[in-house]
Amino acid sequence: MLQAVQIAPQGPEFSPMVMGYWRLMEWQMSPQQLTGFIEQHVELGITTVDHADIYGGYQCEAAFGEALRLQPSLRGRLQLVTKCGIATTANPEHKLGHYRTDAQHIRQSAENSLRHFHTDHLELLLIHRPDPLMDADEVAEAFIQLHQSGKVKHFGVSNFTPAQFSLLQSRLPFTLATNQVEISPIHQELLLDGTLDQCQQIRIRPMAWSCLGRGEIFTQPQYQALREELERVREEIAAENIEQVIYAWILALPSRPLPIIGSGKIERVRSAAAAASLSLSRQQWFRIRKAALGYDVP
């Protein structure tokens, strides 16, 4: 069973792997089936769940909340993470997709999430994407108000550059808890652009989304060499499958990311959780890097 870890100097404590609910509506689970699925991954020690207001065309939060209503005791075993700041055309009021990080929208989005989840607080609220019209003072105003009211315990960002992260942090009296970013063998830019270095510097743990490269690692012909290298490493470390090798590759990063698992199949969730016990040598790690990028280190 996975054990909770503290992800920032001022908290919170999360499971070292996170259950992602972006595709919840595609899983076509009844509320009863979803309740059973939540119970199963909680038993594995995966107690932190990742959402966003826009997921599933603005439906995922409410669907998850209905499952929690069937088993209210689950709420106390979970850490709810959600995001706001993107306005999509799934809402008929939006003529085009855009970003919204004004204080009123942040507060209203948080209130909507609380209502959807049938709870009185969120463990973590993130700004979903950098907004070119973001006023850092206005975001900070909303964060501080939500924090003082007890409705949101911690705050963070998603997909922010180090400069964008530092700007918002400069306006806050508490530490931003995480930066949720895309990390996979086929998306390595953040490993060297300062994003993960910043996480190490201020001792926060990033959350890693799309660890499996949106599934492209397993299907696209340009990643055949990567699949072959992952298979060789799988044999060497006695992993069950190459998915575990990919998670182990991400977990080896010194910023200690929390991988987000995006599958609605408990067997794959269980397999992902088992990857936490695997380790790669430095040579194995760099072999995977080279196979993904197609070239050696300079």
Score class of each variant (00 low, 15 high):
156 G>S: 06
146 L>E: 05
145 Q>W: 11
134 M>F: 00
163 A>Y: 08
79 Q>K: 15
143 F>D: 02
89 T>C: 14
167 L>P: 00
165 F>R: 02
170 S>H: 10
153 K>V: 13
140 A>M: 04
102 D>T: 09
85 G>L: 08
156 G>K: 06
86 I>H: 04
84 C>W: 06
160 F>A: 02
130 P>C: 04
101 T>S: 15
95 K>C: 04
87 A>K: 15
137 D>S: 12
99 Y>A: 06
80 L>Y: 10
141 E>H: 15
75 R>A: 12
84 C>V: 11
154 H>D: 02
94 H>N: 15
130 P>R: 02
92 P>R: 04
139 V>Q: 08
159 N>Q: 12
103 A>H: 01
147 H>Y: 14
133 L>G: 02
161 T>D: 04
154 H>E: 01
139 V>K: 07
167 L>V: 12
75 R>E: 06
155 F>E: 09
84 C>T: 13
168 L>I: 07
157 V>N: 04
74 L>T: 00
102 D>L: 07
100 R>K: 11
109 S>Y: 05
125 L>G: 01
124 L>E: 05
118 H>K: 09
114 L>I: 08
88 T>F: 13
110 A>N: 08
82 T>M: 05
101 T>D: 08
123 E>F: 01
77 R>W: 01
142 A>M: 09
101 T>Y: 01
106 I>H: 02
126 L>G: 06
120 D>H: 15
115 R>M: 11
126 L>M: 13
106 I>P: 01
137 D>T: 05
93 E>C: 09
119 T>G: 02
117 F>L: 15
150 G>R: 09
103 A>Y: 01
86 I>T: 12
